[in-house]
């Protein structure tokens, strides 16, 4: 009878232990404000380590972490690797290119092979939405899974480092107005940011984009839709620019790069619509002259470079918390 099936209104949150601690980090969805705050506080404790002579803590000594990147990435993988090493874990980096055929089989075989090597944690990036959930729920439930970006779905560690950045620069989330600008349609970063900002209590989340780059019904996640920069940026405290992929720029979704820049590119002039103390963020890598002017990207309001640094601390926090939850559950099973 259908009542015995998973109730879609209350999906089992596969990323939490029975007592509500993190054991995977798959998406922001379904996490409490307390848990997100715990991640930020833990990240804060790691944040100053980079300046110390000895940059390591022994929290994950003896653990094996595998960075499984089915999709190219330089910065994200590098910060995950550094985060793992600063936690004293052993790290294996695997870049796996997927052909369009037999993707599922390659994924499963790869995972089973690595599982046989007794890995403790997978950091996974994949171009299909839901891959991290799939691995955590179907393939390797006993390995902690950290989602480093899946399709258009989620990029929760990026969102948390962005929240960390906002909290560092703005102090708190209450009363904040945040605008996210650009290619929302293809952005997993935006989706995770919208969730996190709502949970943490931001006053307003705005999405600014042409209608071709706005997913249908996205406002139901808790966001207001704007199609013009002037109204969208008015009085906001934080401006988050998204990267526009080259292949989206010509024809199908946008007429041209030049028109996009003219309408939505963040220039000094458009930034003036925002609050005078507004900060400018970007998940990187930036396209200068496409979504952001160099003078803004390198200007005094930009915190883009700080974001990269905070990424390491945030990922250390998530990895140590998930490993601890996973170990606790393993002990309970034994």
């Amino acid at each position: 009878m259908s009542s015995t099936l998973n109730n879609p209104a209350h999906p089992r949150n596969v990323q939490l232990t029975a007592d509500g601690r993190l054991k995977h980090f798959l998406s922001i969805n379904g996490l409490s404000k307390a848990l997100l705050t715990e991640i930020l506080d833990t990240a804060e404790s790691f944040a100053n380590m980079g300046g110390q002579a000895v940059k390591k803590v022994p929290l994950l000594r003896g653990k094996t972490i595998v960075n499984l990147f089915f999709e190219n990435s330089t910065r994200t993988r590098a910060t995950f690797e550094l985060a793992a090493k600063r936690l004293s874990a052993d790290v294996l980096n695997l870049d796996i290119s997927t052909s369009s055929t037999a993707k599922g089989e390659i994924l499963m075989d790869t995972l089973h092979n690595i599982e046989a090597m007794y890995a403790d944690m997978f950091v996974v990036r994949h171009n299909d939405s839901g891959t991290a959930h799939f691995i955590a729920s179907q393939i390797t439930p006993q390995v902690a899974i950290i989602n480093a970006g899946d399709g258009r779905h989620a990029h929760p560690t990026q969102a948390m480092l962005d929240m960390f950045t906002i909290r560092r620069h703005k102090g708190a989330f209450e009363g904040l107005k945040v605008a996210i600008v650009g290619d929302i349609l293809h952005s997993r970063v935006a989706r995770s940011q919208i969730r996190a900002l709502n949970i943490l209590g931001a006053a307003e989340v705005r999405l600014v984009a042409p209608k071709t780059l706005l997913p249908v019904g996205i406002e139901e996640m808790g966001a207001k839709i704007y199609t013009r920069m002037e109204s969208g940026l008015k009085d906001v405290d934080v401006v988050i620019m998204l990267r526009l992929q080259k292949e989206r720029m010509s024809g199908a979704l946008l007429p041209s790069e030049a028109e996009f820049y003219r309408l939505y590119g963040l220039t000094t002039q458009k930034l003036a619509y925002a609050h005078p103390e507004a900060i400018v963020m970007h998940p990187g890598p930036i396209n200068r002259g496409v979504e952001i002017e160099s003078a803004v990207a390198d200007g005094p309001r930009s915190v883009i470079l700080q974001q990269v640094g905070y990424g390491i601390a945030t990922r250390m926090a998530v990895m140590s918390m998930a490993m601890s939850g996973q170990m606790q559950e393993r002990l309970q099973v034994q």
Binding site: G130, D150, P215, M221
Partner: peptide, 15 residues
């Protein structure tokens, strides 16, 4: 199905 849920989950929708 193209709708709020597919948008949230990042699944490509069919209108």
């Amino acid at each position: 199905h193209e709708g709020p849920l597919s948008s949230q989950l990042g699944l490509a929708g069919i209108p």
